[in-house]
Write a protein that binds this DNA or RNA. Structure first.
Lengths: 340, 340
DNA sequence: GCACGATCTGGGAACGATCCCACACACCGG
DNA sequence: CCGGTGTGTGGGATCGTTCCCAGATCGTGC
């Protein structure tokens, strides 16, 4: 397997110019579709490009223009959740769609440890990317602070509680949580608990707030358990805990579908029927929700559209558009299935 | 949100040289840890770098060295499966781990349509990446052929049936499939069917071959149904079809866990018990397998290690190492749960 | 004391684009 | 016929590195 001279010298703008019988300046003008190019020159250059098989050298372009034409997507999530969280994939695809249409390359950066965190901060500072989109930052997140201090165009997907001045896109977690909790109330549940999670992020905090708000005076803090991760295991353990705290519990709001799935399995193991004995609702409308037994009622959030919005916002900042909104909220809806 | 002069001029190698009282040539030598640099010069340069906050300009470096220091990861998969396939995420993380240690940037490219396919081929040809890793290519895949013809260092994860001369990493799907099928035979199943899928890839073909091989003379082609996608829906529909073809069916090999999950739900809907009436086995050991009712017995494949191996192979090719093996197989194991 | 190699350093020439200035020409109105 | 404006084109300077060549210095062996 020789890695030697397989790739021969690539054609440059000068080769194109020579082929077309024009100067490299004119070729550059055609490439960047600037004004003041005659139709004949345009045609000649295009023919020459096709003939010599020219493709633009990005490194040279980037060097001269002092841009990278790349946007970073920073995902701060343990590996295990990165693999399972369906929202992240959808955000990634949505972002990629917008950016590639705008001729920007998406570069994904996964942070799984503090070491990664420092390396990524360095990377962002190094001019490798023209802008950055940050997914699932927590409060006190070093990356979030680094970004805010570098002054690079940035957007958060979800809003870290302790940063301001950086635009973000998100959903209204408070009202979404309140509205799905109401469902439990309306269907006659009396003892309603919550398995909360990720309280170091806005999503976690806000879902708890919404839950509390919907219950009003009936809110009972002893029926709330908290876990760091939006995971199946949190749901399993959380539900067990809630059952011991109050065996008469008849409604549960799980802060994510994964948690909901865990709760469902814990309830089954404890011999409770759903929705007969206990009503359960989740959050995300991920693949989990549909596959549970019984299928989970949940909040659907438009993750792909969040990704698109974030991408559009960075591009707008890059173009220097004057009024890039700092807060952008997208609508959620509720999907009713069988679990409540 | 002004995008104006927030990022002031970055320090260059010349600024460092001036600060250290040395020439830019010497600074470059330190940066690339070449020979013939005195200890004092080394120290002076390092101090100067820290003082002026220098970070290397990659565009300039890439321009001069004619490299991009980036590796492409091409995933050829419909969006829906990209989100759900746990192997892809694990491959991505494994790859990223090795590459970032070697100071290479991973660039993910998702192909969801023929249009994408052409654009990505163009991208690879454009010198944006020094090498490429291709996941889940099918036979007749234009990207696979493009890569083979460009002559760029490349590795396949899984082997497209109609390409040769390009290294690949993979698992032995034939023997893994044979061995899990044997389990069904050993536990006394008599009428064993398969829901096959993705026959345009080596994984799909080989799992079918392994199944056939394990059954030997008892193989009955009427008990094999085929679907293009490794999806839950394929499992649902496939199981229904198998039940109509032969209601006495008592064993099923699903070509993936997602298919297995679908099959399980179809069996439940048809009133069959698992593993009582029918034994079911899957492939992948994904999150699906654990969450099914009952949990699925399945083949575990080391997806993260596949990603690492692929990355190592591209790096080896890049370094011009002489004997990069063309075929690399990793061991699989079988996880016994309750479904068979 | 001198030739010679090894070590270290300085500085110029690329790499391949973009950007800008200078110039050529056409057209128009007064 | 002349100045001015709008088009179109050529070619030089430049971005920040790496690479290479030339030269300086220092030992070391004869």
């Amino acid at each position: 397997m020789p890695a030697d001279d397989r790739r021969r010298r690539r054609a440059t703008i000068h080769d194109v110019a020579a082929e077309a019988g024009l100067s490299h300046g004119t070729v550059s003008r055609v490439l960047n579709s600037e004004r003041y190019v005659s139709a004949t020159a345009q045609a000649a250059v295009e023919a020459a490009i096709a003939k010599v098989g020219y493709v633009r050298n990005t490194a040279a372009r980037n060097l001269k223009t002092q841009q990278s034409h790349a946007i970073g997507l920073v995902v701060h999530e343990p590996h295990s959740l990165f693999l399972e969280d369906p929202n992240i994939g959808a955000i990634l695809l949505g972002t990629n769609e917008i950016l590639s249409n705008a001729d920007y390359q998406l570069v994904s950066l996964v942070i799984d440890s503090d070491r990664d965190s420092a390396r990524v901060a360095e990377y962002l500072r190094g001019g490798f990317v023209d802008g950055v989109i940050i997914v699932s930052a927590r409060s006190g997140d070093p990356i979030a602070h680094a970004v805010a201090s570098i002054g690079i165009p940035a957007v958060f997907v979800g809003h870290p509680p302790d940063i301001s001045g950086v635009p973000f896109v998100g959903i209204d977690n408070v009202s979404a949580a309140a509205s799905i909790t109401s469902r439990l109330i309306e269907t006659g549940r009396r003892r309603i608990g919550m398995i909360a999670s990720a309280l170091d992020r806005d999503s976690g905090q806000d879902r708890l707030s919404g839950f509390r708000q919907a219950l009003g005076a009936r809110f009972d803090s002893s029926l709330v358990v908290e876990f760091p991760l939006y995971s199946y295991d949190s749901g399993l353990e959380g539900m067990r805990e809630l059952l011991t705290r109050d065996p008469t519990i008849d409604g549960v709001f799980a802060a994510s579908d994964a948690i909901g799935a865990g709760a469902l399995d814990a309830l089954r193991a404890a011999g409770r029927s759903v929705p007969g004995d206990v009503g359960v609702v989740g959050f995300d409308d991920s693949a989990w929700a549909m596959r549970c037994q019984p299928p989970l009622s949940t909040v659907r959030q438009p993750a792909d559209e969040l990704g698109r919005m974030a991408a559009r916002s960075v591009l707008a900042q890059l173009k220097g558009e004057p009024d890039v909104p700092e807060a952008m909220f997208l609508e959620t809806s509720i999907v009713w299935r069988d679990s409540a």
